[in-house]
């Protein structure tokens, strides 16, 4: 391989796995380096007039635009809202920018906008600014949406991966991989008896229910791109601890398992868009789960693992008692032959 060949951007640079990590570390950080960016949180934490603000941005591309359980519009709102929520903030304002492909039916765009306004309305979140660009494209479905959100961080919030201690407990608010499986099944036109539904949903209920427990929450993340494995592996590395997961405790819906079996893709690497992963102080896990279960989106909350002293590893104890390491996603999961 010559050097030039190495130098192009591959689709895998955008999958949230190892290549994305390398691109950020190797290309963006050296250019933009500053104290806020270096925190590498889902949102930047900004001190302003006695308040701590959370500031987060995300761009969305998804094919198909409409999928079982959601659409790009709902995803764009939930994605940014959830980044603020897992940073321990209350979302206040959103922006929305559109890069629209030439040839897209206005009706279709309106459907997306309607979906965004519905969900933003439910959340009582105003979209206060925006932008529109049109680009020439061969594909009228090639819509890009960027949303940015500002929130105010609750005084009780003290989330930092550095706070994770070896006895802490890992909780997830529900089943894993639903969104990733729904998208893959829809994109590939898999003929299944029952198609998986995306779990795309706002996580604001977590702050409502868990605020009194914020002092016991060490860190929170939403396992989107790269899935549970990549998200926890990143936490393990930045927190300099090991995490152990118990396969038997992790809820993978049968429909999701069916898709991952057909395609040979591990559900631990499939995205969720409506789940939160919490690392909490040992001893507080039962109370926290009890609270989460009060909301329909948290009814399947459960303990899935724990932290141990270590150096950045993520291990899975399989249902049969074997142990296997989980790595960061390396390259977009690709459907296999067979």
């Amino acid at each position: 391989m010559n050097e030039q060949e190495k130098d192009v951007i591959l689709l895998s640079h955008g999958d949230g796995g190892l290549l994305t990590h390398q691109l950020i570390q190797g290309t963006f950080f050296p250019g933009f380096k500053n104290e806020w960016l270096e925190e590498e949180g889902d949102s930047a934490v900004l001190n302003f007039c006695h308040e701590r603000l959370a500031f987060s941005t995300d761009s969305f591309v998804v094919s198909p635009l409409f999928f079982p359980g959601g659409d790009i519009g709902k995803l764009a709102i939930c994605g940014t809202v959830n980044d603020l929520v897992v940073s321990g903030a209350r979302p206040l304002w959103l922006s929305a920018a559109f890069i629209i492909p030439e040839g897209m039916a206005i009706e279709r765009l309106s459907d997306v906008v309607r979906s965004m306004s519905e969900i933003a309305g439910d959340l009582k979140l105003p979209i206060v600014t925006g932008d529109t660009k049109v680009v020439s494209s061969n594909d009228p479905e090639n819509l890009f949406i960027n949303t940015t959100g500002i929130g105010v961080i609750y005084p009780e919030t003290n989330f930092n991966v550095k706070n994770v201690e070896p006895s802490d407990i890992v909780i997830i608010t529900g089943s894993i991989g639903d969104h990733g499986a729904a998208i893959l099944a829809a994109r590939l036109g898999l003929e299944l008896e029952e198609s998986p539904q995306s779990d795309c949903a706002p996580l604001d209920f977590i702050s409502t229910l868990l605020r009194p427990y914020f002092p016991y929450i060490k860190v929170m993340r939403d396992p989107t791109r790269g899935g549970l494995a990549t998200t926890l592996k990143e936490l393990a590395i930045s927190g300099d601890v090991d995490f152990w997961l118990e396969e038997n405790s992790i809820n993978v819906k049968p429909k999701v398992k069916a898709v991952s079996d057909i395609l040979g893709i591990d559900p631990y690497y499939l995205a969720s868009e409506g789940r939160a992963l919490l690392v909490v102080k040992n001893g507080k896990e039962e109370e926290i789960i009890k609270e989460l279960k009060k909301h329909p989106l948290g009814k399947d909350a459960s303990i899935i693992g724990y932290a141990r002293a270590g150096k950045g590893n993520l291990f899975l104890r399989t249902k049969l008692g074997g142990t296997r390491p989980l790595q960061m996603l390396a390259g977009t999961p690709l459907p296999r032959i067979c």
Partner: peptide, 21 residues
């Protein structure tokens, strides 16, 4: 092609890299 083949290195390049180009 099936997805598996995309990243397989040939002698000098791969389908994934050709696609990017």
């Amino acid at each position: 092609t099936f997805g598996d083949l995309l990243r397989v290195p040939g002698s000098f390049t791969s389908l994934e890299k050709e696609k990017a180009k």
